[in-house]
Amino acid sequence: MSWFRRHPSIAGWLLLAPGILYLLVFYAYPTVQMFLVSLWTGSAASGYTLTWNFGIYASALNQYQDQIFRSIEFGGLATLFTFVLSFPLAYFIAFRGGRYKNILLFLVIAPFFTSFLLRTISWEIIFADNGIVLGPAKELGLVPPTFRLLATPVAVIAGITYNFLPFMTLPLYVALEKIPPSLLEAAQDLYAGTWQRFRRVTLPMALPGVFAGTLLTFIPAVGDFVNAELLGSPQSQMIGNVIENRFEKVSDYPTGAALSFILMAAILAAVFIYARLVGTEQLSGGGA
């Protein structure tokens, strides 16, 4: 044991080794393998060989550009909506929560103790054609009998917005909560009005939370296929649906792998640009 003390670097690496090896074998290498599989040609029946077929990237981008743009659109809109919905809520909890702060935070998180799938299925029930909302609305003549929510882009975006809301609310809350009251008092002492104080102190101080929340929401939103599958229609498919379909239904591994690689590369590029802007410590919660 005293040997450990004389070689702290080696002791550190010994502690790290099992977990880091695991991540290298089952996280880092598989992304390389995914890239290699995207360059395979062949079929599930006759077997695949690595042919360095880079052309698949052009054809995949070309064939599925609708779904790619739709994913960015749905993910972006859902991220915007989570921000609009979360900000007043996070603001209220941080500044007006008082002794109910923890209870309010618990009420925000508690719904997410329910399975992601079951939450989405609940929205399916709520949006159903003659369900608990549209049924009575149609009977009262508020909407035409053919009006639909389920199987529309609105339902998909609403589902994504709901499912990823805490990923926005919590970072915003953490950022707002950190603002020292003395700073707000100082603004007041310097004759800043309520609006000016909000715009020149609160909002800039909340920016790290906005950045973190945007990333945490946009990344899962853009890659999601569950909401589009359960709440959407074949016309509102996202890139995730295509990838899932390529692997699980038709065993077209190269196209599925190529699309996943494009998704990963696009998101990593976005993360690195963000990291350059705000620093990785804000993103991973310190230490990185």
Binding site: F26, A28, Q33, M34, G223, I243, A257, S260, L263, M264
Partner: peptide
């Protein structure tokens, strides 16, 4: 290496392991 898996979409984690 710790941070990246958390910022990779789940579908990419699933697909890369499958490959």
């Amino acid at each position: 290496l710790i941070f990246l898996p958390m910022s990779t979409p789940e579908i990419v984690l699933g697909v890369s392991l499958l490959t």
